[in-house]
């Protein structure tokens, strides 16, 4: 069941990433990374790693990049976030925010580092850009957590309210 969720969430993230940008300026926010970190924090390192592998490869395939670049970076991020999720308590929004920030930076470091190191592309390392990217991912990631935590309760409360009215 979890695999289905991973596939659906990844597909949704990729679809949103590739379509939403036309209407909402996402900037350098990486929805796929947010999904990977989310599953890593909620399900552990193996799920995080496999989600990262799958999502990264899909992202590579759809972006015309060298297959495996995003796959590798997101695998590492998923595994590391999973380790953090199991070793530390990351139930608080601030701790999640920090994890998302660090995950974004690590992802960028590996992804860009590989491209730069292999001489395939020059990105131009802008600290402001990296910080903005990490900040955007962290904010959206925390919001995603809030949404998923609030959503089941809200549904439950709504059902409960309907029952009282009857």
């Amino acid at each position: 069941m979890k695999v289905v969720w991973v596939i659906l969430a990844t597909a949704a993230a990729v679809a949103l990433q590739t379509t939403l940008d036309r209407w909402i300026p996402l900037g350098t926010v990486d929805l796929v990374l947010i999904v990977v970190v989310y599953f890593a924090l909620t399900s552990g390192r193996v799920t995080g790693m496999l989600t990262g592998t799958f999502a990264g490869l899909v992202q590579d395939a759809l972006s015309g990049a060298v297959i495996g670049m995003a796959g590798l970076s997101k695998t590492v991020v998923g595994f590391a976030a999973g380790v953090v999720g199991t070793q530390f308590i990351v139930a608080h929004s601030f701790s999640r925010f920090v994890v998302f920030m660090l995950a974004s930076l690590v992802d960028q470091l590996i992804f860009r580092g590989l491209y730069e190191g292999l001489g395939l592309r020059h990105f131009g390392w802008s600290y402001a850009q990296l910080a903005g990217h990490a900040l955007g991912n962290a904010v959206l990631g925390v919001l995603l957590f809030k949404l998923t935590e609030l959503l089941p309760g809200a549904v439950e409360r709504r059902r409960h309210a309907r029952g009282l009215r009857r």
């Binding site: 496999l50 592998t53 060298v66 297959i67 796959g71 590798l72 695998t75 595994f79 395939l120």
Partner: peptide, 26 residues
């Protein structure tokens, strides 16, 4: 049980990615 061998699995996946990248990059 892959969960107990998460480190090895991680290593294998990373190596797999490196091989995949190396096959494409000159």
């Amino acid at each position: 049980d892959l969960r107990l061998r998460a480190g090895y699995l991680f290593l294998a996946v990373v190596v797999g990615h490196l091989v995949l990248i190396s096959a494409q990059v000159n």
